[in-house]
Amino acid sequence: MTQTTSERYRVKPIRDRRREWPFPLNLYQTAVGRKWVMAVTGIGLLGFVLIHMIGNLHVYEGPAKMHEYAESLKNLGSGILPRSLILWLLRLSLMVMFGLHLHSAITLKEMSRKSSLNASFQSGEKKYEGGREYIAASYASRTMRWTGPIIALFLIYHLADMTWGWWLGNEFVPGDPYHNLYSSLSRIPVAIFYVIANMALAWHIFHGAWSMFQSLGINNPKYNHLRRGFAASFAGLILLGNLSFPIMTQANLIDEEERLCQVSIGDTDEILACLTKQLEDH
């Protein structure tokens, strides 16, 4: 494009248009496209969070059912494919989604920060001396950049705790999620961290599950009014489900007193065999 507005009156762009990558990678080169990626990965993550939460409800059916659920995840598609392959693929795509979601969040934030710097009035965020009375921006929308990282941190902890058993030590029994969950959440600090993180998650979803419609351009006056409700209910549902675990544990509604296969430390195989047998008996 020839630019013929006299140079002296032309504000310079703060970023250059880079060389375009081939389709569809070029989508990720623009902020609107990146937001779209963010929304799509957000939806993926929403799906994960929902299924994860529903799955975990098996805990109320006791250790054996919980064990069965865990096994069934591993057995997904196992008729034809190697055991655990699908689960690993799912995990992989989750990781990719997470990575993209995170990367776009960080880079877009940086873009906005750069656009708000003002040569003569710098202070990290865009601020006005006269205070900034937000009218539309909700607390949730303004804290996406905080709730996000809290979730990420929690997730790492959560994985380390429940999947890899770093902190449970000897208490950790691979394949007995009921037990692991109980042992983890019965510790007060862990329960508190769990509660906080899930509140952050719900908070994140409260804005995210509304915002993604805008980012994807899903907008129709006929159902626009439903979008806020959808986001709020989704967030509420996840919050309710996920919070029930630490609360129930602390309230001793999830406990190990009545379990048939007692956990004897160190003897993993025995417990698993017991759990499997219990299922077959049923």
């Binding site: 504000v11 762009p13 703060i14 970023r15 250059d16 248009r17 623009t30 902020a31 609107v32 990146r34 937001k35 877009l108 934030k109 873009m111 906005s112 920060r113 750069k114 656009s115 708000s116 937000y134 009218i135 539309a136 921006a137 909700s138 929308s141 303004r142 996406m144 804005h207 509304w210 915002s211 805008q214 980012s215």
Partner: peptide, 19 residues
Amino acid sequence: VETMEEFFGSCTNHGECHE
């Protein structure tokens, strides 16, 4: 859109602009 992005930040759907 691409020209806009050379100058301005990325929307997070706050809605302050509308207000």
